[in-house]
Computed example of a mutant assay.
Amino acid sequence: MRNFSWLLLAASIAAEVVGTLALRHADGFTRALPSAVVAAAYALWAGAGTALIAVCGVWLFGEAVTLARCLGVAMIVLGVVVLHLDPR
């Protein structure tokens, strides 16, 4: 069962990468929305997803809440937002 967990994780990561790469072929959905709105929406989705997964780990699996983990999640969220708001 443990190997299945790693396989499921790998499949989830692959699906994330494929979905993100597919945005390029959809012109970043700029036909429907201005690109600035799409960039902000993606940054919010990625950052919120990271934070919610961390909260679910604490809530569902009893993972410890430490200062280092809280700072780590905050830096990930901030990093994602900064990367996706870069105008280049």
Rank of each mutant, 00 (worst) to 15 (best):
A51P: 11
T66W: 00
L83A: 08
V55D: 04
G79K: 00
A64H: 03
E16F: 11
T30I: 04
L44K: 09
G47M: 15
M1T: 15
V18W: 01
C70K: 06
A39L: 03
G28I: 06
A74M: 02
A64M: 03
A46K: 14
R2W: 11
L21N: 06
A68W: 09
F29H: 15
A54Y: 12
S5H: 06
D27L: 02
L85W: 09
L60Q: 07
L8A: 10
T66P: 00
A10W: 14
G47R: 12
G28C: 03
G72A: 03
A40S: 09
D27K: 02
A36E: 13
F4V: 13
V37Q: 09
A46L: 15
R31E: 13
R2A: 08
L21P: 08
A32V: 15
A43Q: 06
D27P: 00
A10Q: 09
L52Q: 10
R2G: 15
G79W: 00
W59P: 01
F4E: 14
R69V: 04
V55I: 09
W45C: 11
A22R: 04
T50P: 12
A41Q: 05
A32L: 10
A14S: 02
E16Y: 05
W59Q: 02
A41R: 07
S12P: 01
W45M: 09
G57D: 01
H25F: 07
A32T: 11
C56M: 08
A36R: 11
I13N: 02
A54F: 14
G49S: 03
V55W: 07
V81A: 14
